[in-house]
Amino acid sequence: MAQYLVSVLADSSQLATEQEMTAIRAFNLRLKAEGHWVFAGGLGSPDTATVVDGRDGEALFTDGPYLESKEYIIGFWVIEAADLDVALRLAGLGSKHCNRRVEVRPVLGA
């Protein structure tokens, strides 16, 4: 079994609507029932980000995201899937349920 990070992309931090939340919850239940669930969560907007650089000893904090872009990640799933075909099918359903585009990336060595 491999693990995949499914990131939810958006161009605004508008929270999911009531209807979208209901659909996401239903999808999460399905992931759990079918043994694909690892973890999921929504994220605060890039405005709430802090970049931390601790490479030189004392950590240096920078307000804001590490890169400015029109689109950013507003939430994610970590799913377990046999291969990319299974991961892509689940990601397609996830995208439909949360009504946003998603990006799928393999978690290395998982």
Binding site: A2, A81, A82, D83, L84, D85, A87, R89, V104, R105, P106, L108
Partner: peptide, 14 residues
């Protein structure tokens, strides 16, 4: 290799 694209004939639905 890394993303796990499977080496098989796709399922009937795909």
């Amino acid at each position: 290799k890394t993303a796990g694209i499977p080496y098989r004939v796709p399922s009937r639905e795909d």
